[in-house]
Structure formats: structure tokens, C-alpha cells
Design a protein around this nucleic acid. Sequence first.
RNA 1: GCGAGAGUGGUGGAAUGGUAGACACGCUAGAUUUAGGAUCUAGUGCCUUCGGGCGUGCGGGUUCAAGUCCCGCCUCUCGCACCA
Length: 809
Amino acid sequence: MSETKPRKTYDPTALERRWQVRWAESGLYKTDEDPEKTKHYALTMLPYPSGDLHVGHWYAMTPSDTRARFMRMRGFRVFFPIGFDAFGLPAENAAINRGIHPYKWTISNIENMRGQLRQMGAMFDFGSEVVTCDPEYYRWNQWFFLEFFKKGIAYRTEAPVDWCPKDNTTLAREQVVGPDRRCERCGTQVIKKNLAQWLFKITDYAEELLDFSKIEWPERVKTLQTNWIGRSEGAEIDFEVENYGPVTVFTTRPDTLFGATFFVMSPEHPAVETITTPERSDEVRAYVEKAARMSEIDRTDVTREKSGVFTGAHAINPANGEKIPVFIADYVLMGYGTGAIMAVPGQDERDWEFAEKYGLPIIRTVQPPEDFDGKAYTGDGPAINSAFLDGLNVEEAKAGMAEWLEENGKGRAAVTYRLRDWLISRQRYWGTPIPIIYCDSCGTVPVPEGDLPVLLPEDAEFMPTGESPLKRDPDFYNTQCPACGGPATRETDTMDTFMDSSWYQYRYLSPHYDAGPFDPERGEKWLPVDQYTGGIEHAVMHLLYTRFFTKAMRDLGLVSFDEPMLKLFNQGIILGEDAEKMSKSRGNVVNPQEFVDRYGSDVLRSFLMFIGPWDQGGPWDGRGIEGVSRFLRRALSLTNGGTSDAEADPSELARRTARTVKKVTEDLEAFRFNTAIAALMEHTNYLLAVRGEAGERGWNESLRTFVLLLAPFAPHHAEEMWEALGEPYSVHEQPWPGWDEALIAAEEVTLVVQVNGKLRDRMSVPADISEEDAKELALSSARVRPHVEGRELRKSVYVPGRLVNLVVK
RNA sequence: GCGAGAGUGGUGGAAUGGUAGACACGCUAGAUUUAGGAUCUAGUGCCUUCGGGCGUGCGGGUUCAAGUCCCGCCUCUCGCACCA
């Protein structure tokens, strides 16, 4: 019978508190600056201070912490900072709804969350914390803005913008989601509005942003960004429109120009009004109005029948001089390409549909294969009806036409992107003021660097009216022109909060540095980020902006590399117990605090890592957490000095220990936390079953190794066990154990015997058994014999250490 | 419609082309306990005449051997959605 000493009461919360105090007192997680070690900058996406840590924060941060701890034990100097993305709408909404100032609301949330973060027991270096609504931080947003302005990266333009009527602010293109164009934050359908806005020329970097060769990022993110940037190669072609002049189209298929039998403009195209003939104007005007009234959701419905209206005008096909009719149609979008297309029904399905409906001629310019029975043919084939291109395949014909266009001044090779410039102006209070002054005599004047930061006034009226709240604060609004000293007014828009998160990883290095956005010496030592972790939802906003920002910083001479984060891992989403997304309205929100109070941080974090592959996410299982709690209690009991019936076989103990070290190491490298914990559980069960008399050397040595392996997952429990073993503080400063590959190979192996691929027997044999002996042994097995007797042995397969397969007829 | 990913016990999930279901949850029985809880031990894919048979969404193929590779379907999830 097993005999266990009476155990101290298990109180994980007290245990964890004790170690957290000790860690804080001893400065255990102060960043290691040892220049002898290789750097590892581990970064987890900074949270928005919404009030309380959500179980999603735990799911994002604690596995990152485990990974960072693992790297630290492996001998890297690790920088693992944390901060708060503190500007943004929720603070303003809270202020509006509850009358609390956004600053007060934000700061009290941050204080609350700081306490919860400490309870997490992660190795965050709280000394480098960054809070983005702090003037010490946003001053550098303004500084970057001015640098971008000088470089021509920041510019102002009057243009229709996407506007969220609920949040009363503009949105960047990336913040408008779905076919029905909703606000990424609140889900309201966006509308168009004409406003003068500040933008960043991210499109100048479109080509470079398509190059992922210097980073190891998930394919998914790379694909999303590539599609978002949406590069199309083709040509611009100038069509002479009657009584108007040249109108340029973009096409990816210049080779089909001879088949362009009509011309289509977007209803919003500026030429429409001028070219429409008087007899067509009523119909055209009606169509334009109808298109404008139509909701975006209807406008973008692919299944809708094509419609359009003839303007009465004609354009000249530059290739053959044919007069072709000019239509307007809502399937041509002003926001893509040039807002006008040449229609080639023979090679484009939409154009075919349109041509059929309006009885327009169809000319094929690519010969479809004989068995082709469709309508528009989009595949490859020899050019026909195309004069000098005839006989060429599509690629050759494209090049041939581009050359011809260029030579004849009718067009040119061109590349178009779907990506738009990044609109950063927000008509809101709670953000970084844009450091620009407007003067009647000097125009747009940047705030001199020495006058930064332009402080956000504390007492502005921030009710949303659709106008920038700062405009109604005369002390802020009215100022002097820095150039001429005359009366002037300030820009009253604030910056998109994605500005804050585009470069925070640099500020972490020296959060109080005042000679620049970050201390270049610190940058030299730590940049770029080695491992970034966060949610996939940021694939085309934050992750694209921060790449752009780093490239712009490089062009300003601030950094010498091209990419901000070398490796990226996206964790999944943790769902409610009903396998639905957690939401207050569904009532399936899991409050981590409840579980921290009951089981402690180590159990909660280990459970979240054990639940399944980290990138998969998955539903919360309130019962499952018990299993992990049991595991950590059992692990802890290993240091209580009990004994069990069985004694460890020394070579098996050594083998299993080495195997566990290998498994956990390799799994941690690959972010496979779930199988690493499974291996630790298995090893715990084994160690419990074979603890002989206390003091047995091999067993104790194995336990010591086990505690080291446990440390990144359950840092508090491991510390407690380490102390119980009489080892010096702290387990987190110990080197990661290695393993001897030679120990892993077993002396005896279980060989599987198959007959025609079917499992018939298992035998325990020496690992180095010869093929002949293995086969002979297999044939002599009582369970195998009935299946082979009287049949011809045609072949046998021997896989050393694994199986013998006897193939009989 | 296009693109990507995924379908394995009652559940979450494991499986370099080589013992399917590791590790857990749950469940069953037993031990302990005043009781409950906790803990410990054993069992737990399905069927079975106890020999064995069948099993990784469905149908085919390659192979000595397929959850894994190939082809064709079905279902689900996530992107994108008239992009010229």
C-alpha cells in the first residue's frame, strides 16, 4: 500500500502570492542585459485597458510567457515587456455614458489590470511599461507625424471618406469590413462623407510590403496581406471620348483591346455629366441617382443582373479606330483602377452578360479550345481578330500590346493596387492631437519640434457631434502661427489609434527616453522583435501598419532593418462553454478571476495551454480545468517524500526522463504547449508510481529535471518544488536541461507482427535483433501461425524497432 | 462563386506512411470516508457466439502497410466577394 505523509493544506493562491512577492523583491524579472547572451525580444500584443483581464488575455499572454521563460532558461537574454493601448473610443463612450473623464476611466482600468497582470505571475518587465495616452508617449506620435510630413509621407486631402455614423468618425479602408461595409468596431454600416483628412502614403510601400522574404510569418497572414494589397499588373489605355478628351482605363488584359466593343464608366465618374448627350441625360441622371441611393450591400451583390445606361457618347478604340458606345454601369467602381473600363465581352464574363443584355457586339480575341462551350473565354490560347497580335499566346500578346501602346502614345504598362493610403484623421477627443497649425497667410504649418507635445486639453467637451471636439475648445483651437506669429488655428482632429500600436515595440526599450522615440543604443541591443504573438484579427490592420511604419522609420534613418517582427505566431480564440464566441448578451463569458481565486494562476494558464493546439483556440470546459489542477497537485506531491510499492528501473527511469526532456523541448520550440503538458503529466504519473525509498539517487535526479521542465508552465509550483528539493533560488534562473540521445533508445522494444498488414501479435525483443531472428520469431508465434500455415510466404517487411509484416498468398 | 483550413471515442484532443485513440474530461466498479467532496486502484472506441470481427466524413486508388499520399464527392469553419 502506498504511504503518504500528511500533506500541508494545498492553497495555490497563498503559494502563488508568496512567490510573487519574492520575485518582486528580488527583481527576478528585471530584464537580463548580459551582452554575452544572445538577445530574444518576445512581444505579445498590448492589451486595450477595458477594465478587467478577460480569459482571452490569459489565452494570449500566458503561453507567450511560457515561451519567453523557456527561452530564458535556454540561455537567451529575454526582453518581455507589457503596456496599454490606452487611446480609443471605448474610453470616450464610457465618458459619454457615465460622465467619467476618459483619462480617469482609462487610468483606473490600467491600475486594475496591472494588479491582475501581476497575479498572472508572468515574467513581464513592468519597468518598461508603456501607456500610449501618456504625453510622454504620444509626443512621439506627433514627432513621427512631423517627420512623415517633412518626407511627404503624411499629406492632407479633401476627399470622400468612409464615415461611421454611430462612432461619429472617419474610418480607414481597413476598418470597413464585409461586403455590406460595416464599421470594424461597432458593426454600423458606414456612409460616405466629404472631408479634408490627413493620410499616410502607405501605397508608396505597396510593392515592398508584398515581400515577405525577410520574415517567418504564417501563410495565412501573408495571404491576407497580399490580397489586401491586391497587386494587378496590366496597362493603362487612353480612349478618346467624343466632345471630351482622353479617358484612361486600367486593364489586366491589354491583349484583348481589339475585342473592346464598348466602354463603361462608373456612375460617379467625373466625365459622365459632360459627355452625356441631351437626349440621354434624363435616363443617365436617373441611373446615377439610383446608384447613389442604393445601399452598398445591394450594389455589391454579385448575383444581381447587370444594368447600365448608354450616355449617347462614343469612344474611339485606339487599336482599330472603331467607335464604341460609352455606358455607365454600377458594376464599375470609382474606387478601383481609374473608374472606367474597356469592355471585352469575348473574354470577360461580366462584360459578356452586359453585352448580351444590351445587344452589343462580341468579338473573340483569344481562340478558345474546340471543346469550349461557355461564353466568355478567360483562358489561354492564340490571339485572333487582333491584327499584329494574331497567333501569339496571352502572355506574348500582353507584352506586344503594351509595347504598341507605348510606341503610339496610347497607353503604357501599369500596375494597380487595391491598397489605399492610410487615413489617420479622427474627429474624436481621446487621441493624439495632430501637430499642425493653419495660418491664413502661411497656410499649413507644422508645429515646431520644440513645441511638442501638443497636449490634449483636459477639459474639452467631448460629446460626439460629428465635428472634432477640440474645435469647440477655444484655448486649444486658437493659437499663434509659429511662422509669422499671426493668429492661427490648430488642427483639431486626432490620430487613429493604430498609430500608437505601430511603433510601441520601439518605445518599450526606453519608455522615458526624451531625445527621440527610442534610445538607439537600446535599439542596437534588442531590435528587431524576434517573436511576436497575437490574434489573427490584426492581419491586415495593425500588422500591415507596423510593417509600413518600420519601413518608413528605416527611410528616416531611425533603424537599419526592414521588418519589425521576424517571427509571428497567431493564437486562436477561446470560446464560451457553448462553443460560441463569448459575449455578454449570450451570457457565456468566462471570468478568469473566478478561476484564479479557486485554482490559482498556474492551473488556469496550464489548462489554457492544455486545452488544444494554441493556434486553434476552442471552447472553454469548466470541468476540464479540474484535471489540470489534479496534475499540479500530484506534481507538487512528488516533493513530499512519500514512497510507493514499485521501484524505478534505473535504465527505464533514465530513458523516460530523457524522452520527456526531448519532447517538452521540441514542443515548446514549436508552440505545441498541449502535447508538452501531456508529456509532463505522463512523466508525473510514472514518477509517482515508481518512487522507491526517499533519497534514491536516480529518482531524485529525475525529479529535479522534471521541475525544470515544469517551470515555464507552472512557474509558482515549480518554484515551490525547487525549494522543497533544497535547491537554490530561483528555478527560473537555471539552465534548461538537455538529453542524451543514446539514452532514449530502449534495449527492449515491442515489435509488432502483421500478416498482410493486419496486426496479429506483439513481441518484446532486444532492440538490435536481426531481421532473420525477428522474422523467425514472428513465424513461430502461436497467434501468427494460424494465419500463415499452409500459405505461401511471398515477402516480408522488417522495420527495425517497429514491425515485421509477413505477406502470404 | 473564388481561396484557405478542418472532419478521429460520449467530450477536448494524440499519432516521422509502420501498435489508431497518447494525455485529459466524463462515465462504471472498488478502496478510503459519519456523509458529501477530495484522494487512491481498476476499467472504459463499437460489435461479439470471446475465436475474433469492425472502426479516423463518403467513394475509389497507390502501397507489404493509409487517419496520414493521390483522385472524385459531402459537410463545417474562416477569409474574399462585380478588382477591370
